[in-house]
Every structure is written in structure tokens, then in C-alpha cells.
């Protein structure tokens, strides 16, 4: 019974994810996507990765879900696609397989002799380790992100010049 909480969180997140794909209105789908991100972040809280959980909320829900919702609201609802039963059945089967593998994995983890929920590092030691050994890689990663910003601006500029 130790693993009732992760199972509840996984089921909650899966329901939110399924709703986000199958809901009748795109905006409701975007809202349930945000709830899915929130459920994932609660899962990170449970695993003891608090820093990651909080930034999951701040980045995914605060920025990415907002962008998706913005796009959906501005562009408007598209055509509804036709429901097809075979696809639905395959999707449910795939989802059930993934859920079963999660449950098996968690129960295996808890059946180990000494499962520890706390990670064996702290944020400070992790930052120290990363900066000392992989500082340059981190720097290049951040540069890649800022080059994505350049790319976004360039795309926006081209679009504006085409419509102007």
C-alpha cells in the first residue's frame, strides 16, 4: 500500500492527458494539458525532486501551456475530426500497456530491500558538480536556447514582411 500515491497521481495525469486529446473544445484540451503538467509536477514532488517539480510548474504551466492556449484561442477551433473506433481501441490498449508497466515498475521499486525516496545529492552539490565538470556544456546549451530566440524573431520578422 506504500505506492498508492504515485498510482493515484499517474491515473490523474493520464486522465488529464486523455481529456486534453479527446475533449470537445480545444480550449478545454489546453486547460487539461496544463492540469497534466501540474500532475506530472506533483509526481516529481513525490519523488523528492523538489527543484525540478517547481520549475516544471513555472516553465511548463507558466509559459508553455500559456503559449498553447494563446495559439488555440487566437487561431480558433478547427474542424472536428471523425471518431474512429479502431484508433480508439488501439489508443486505449497502448495506454493500458503503459499504465501497467508503470505500476509494475513502481511495485518493483518498492519491493527492493531498501527503497530510498530522497535523492543522494542536494541542489548545491549538483550545481557545483555540473559547473565544475560540465560548465562549458551548460553554457553551450544556454547559447542554443538563445539562438532559438534569434530564430523566433527572424521567423516573426519574415512573416511580418510577407504580410506587410
Amino acid at each position: 500500500m506504500d505506492f498508492i500515491v504515485p498510482i493515484i497521481l499517474i491515473i490523474f495525469s493520464s486522465i488529464a492527458a486523455i481529456l486534453s486529446l479527446e475533449s470537445r473544445s480545444l480550449v478545454y484540451g489546453a486547460v487539461s494539458l496544463a492540469i497534466f503538467f501540474l500532475g506530472l509536477s506533483l509526481f516529481f514532488f513525490y519523488l523528492g525532486l523538489t527543484y525540478l517539480a517547481i520549475f516544471q510548474v513555472a516553465v511548463y504551466v507558466g509559459a508553455i501551456a500559456v503559449l498553447i492556449m494563446f495559439t488555440v484561442m487566437v487561431v480558433g477551433e478547427g474542424q472536428r475530426r471523425k471518431r474512429s473506433v479502431p484508433l480508439l481501441a488501439m489508443g486505449l490498449l497502448g495506454g493500458a500497456i503503459i499504465l501497467a508497466s508503470f505500476i509494475m515498475g513502481i511495485s518493483y521499486f518498492f519491493s527492493l530491500p531498501n527503497p530510498s525516496m530522497q535523492p543522494s545529492f542536494t541542489l548545491v552539490s549538483l550545481a557545483r558538480y555540473v559547473m565544475d565538470n560540465y560548465g562549458l556544456i551548460l553554457f553551450i546549451l544556454a547559447l542554443l536556447l538563445t539562438s532559438a530566440a534569434y530564430g523566433a524573431v527572424a521567423l516573426a520578422r519574415r512573416e511580418v514582411e510577407e504580410t506587410a
Binding site: 486547460v31 527543484y51 513555472a58 492556449m69
Partner: peptide, 17 residues
């Protein structure tokens, strides 16, 4: 401090909705 910012990151979502 991070929890504070995480909660306040919800507000743009609320405004949009």
C-alpha cells in the same frame, strides 16, 4: 521562494482564460 514564483506563474493562464 521558488514555490512563490511557481504559484504566481499561474496568473497569466488565469488572465487568458
Amino acid at each position: 521562494l521558488l514555490l512563490y514564483f511557481a504559484i504566481l506563474a499561474f496568473y497569466p493562464l488565469v488572465v487568458l482564460l
